[in-house]
Amino acid sequence: MEHSERNRVNVLRDFQGSFFAMSRLVSFPWTFLEKDLESNKSSDLISDILKQTCLHSLCRKFPPSVRFRRLFLSELIRRQEAADCDPLDELYDALAEVVGAEETAECYKSYLLPSGDAVSLLENVALISEGTTGLVTWEAALYLAEWALAHRQTFAGRTVLELGSGVGLTGITICRSCSPDRYVFSDCHPSVLQKLRNNIQLNSLAEQASPAVSVEDVDWTAATEERLKQIGADTVIAADVVYDPDVVGSLVKLLSKILRCPSPGAPPEVLICSTIRNQETYSGFKQQLEKAGISHHVIPGPVSRVFPYNRVSDIEMIKLYR
């Protein structure tokens, strides 16, 4: 009985985490639900799932997209009807609420932290919009955030500079959980910078005294050593920035400048996390690092599973040094 209850609690947590992160529906723990419906002929578990998803206060405040909620509720109804359970009025009421709702170009995704807190982000529904990929969260950002949660000492009491912050998942997670002294989010696309500021406000980071948080426009081709010295980062991180061969050269030049102007006392710790989509592009990045006199070593995985995302992706994290 105790084991079964523990499984139920874990399944509810999985449903909740996957729902708020808008994971692909096939990744939800449907098998457990099916077995429960078959053995109990009761809608109790579906009712509990609803309370942890569409009827949860987080959904009222930061709702996933209308289309996603519609698909999710339709799948719950399909499985309930297939098991011939008694209809659940609140399930149909929840579906009715989204059937006529208007689709928007933006939606909220929320990522649940081990503390029980959530990082909620306004993201674009489209993967590429306004000429940039920086308006959504990508797998390497989630991986780096998980790594940070397991290595909080890398950030505690430090000034952290993040390159290509995107919508802010990694940085907000670190600010919430890893006690940096100062955190500098950076990007160069105007829409990304605005969304970053909005998400920092959304997560109440701007209202907190610690860490000190700022959003900087850092153009990799124009950032000077003087500017980097002013930031004075102890730790520099980046996720999913090695995807376009056209920008790799300017990234390597920036990293060279960062490693040449250390903060007082010690060189900065530089960590780059990448989803390897194109081996040629990624190998080219490493070759350019070598030509610039920058060495690297691979930080082995895996990391503890905190967020739901596609773990089939080939993700590598490296530490740079001269």
Results as ranks from 00 to 15, higher is better:
residue 7 N to S: 09
residue 30 W to D: 04
residue 263 S to D: 05
residue 64 P to V: 07
residue 68 F to S: 01
residue 38 E to I: 07
residue 279 Q to H: 11
residue 245 P to Q: 09
residue 61 K to T: 10
residue 238 A to K: 01
residue 41 K to S: 14
residue 35 K to Y: 10
residue 100 G to Y: 09
residue 81 E to G: 02
residue 309 Y to E: 05
residue 299 I to D: 01
residue 81 E to M: 10
residue 265 G to I: 00
residue 57 S to Y: 10
residue 305 R to L: 07
residue 67 R to K: 14
residue 21 A to S: 15
residue 254 L to A: 13
residue 142 L to Q: 13
residue 261 C to I: 03
residue 82 A to G: 06
residue 241 V to F: 13
residue 176 R to M: 10
residue 170 T to M: 03
residue 252 V to F: 12
residue 156 A to M: 10
residue 259 L to V: 04
residue 46 I to G: 08
residue 268 P to S: 06
residue 260 R to L: 08
residue 239 A to N: 00
residue 65 S to C: 12
residue 191 S to P: 00
residue 229 K to N: 07
residue 149 L to G: 12
residue 42 S to K: 10
residue 309 Y to C: 08
residue 192 V to K: 00
residue 312 V to A: 13
residue 165 S to Q: 06
residue 233 A to W: 01
residue 206 A to E: 13
residue 15 F to I: 00
residue 282 Y to D: 04
residue 209 A to G: 06
residue 62 F to P: 02
residue 252 V to I: 11
residue 178 C to L: 11
residue 41 K to R: 15
residue 256 S to F: 09
residue 259 L to Q: 06
residue 218 V to H: 02
residue 118 A to D: 07
residue 2 E to H: 11
residue 288 Q to I: 01
residue 70 R to K: 15
residue 170 T to V: 06
residue 22 M to P: 01
residue 9 V to T: 14
residue 121 L to W: 05
residue 50 L to Y: 01
residue 29 P to S: 08
residue 211 P to V: 02
residue 11 V to W: 00
residue 66 V to R: 15
residue 170 T to W: 04
residue 9 V to M: 11
residue 24 R to Q: 15
residue 158 R to G: 03
residue 30 W to R: 02
residue 286 K to N: 07
residue 11 V to F: 05
residue 231 I to F: 05
residue 163 L to M: 08
residue 25 L to R: 07
residue 283 S to R: 14
residue 297 H to L: 09
residue 124 N to T: 13
residue 33 L to P: 10
residue 73 L to Q: 06
residue 209 A to N: 11
residue 309 Y to L: 00
residue 221 T to C: 13
residue 212 A to T: 14
residue 56 H to W: 05
residue 92 Y to C: 09
residue 117 D to W: 07
residue 246 D to F: 11
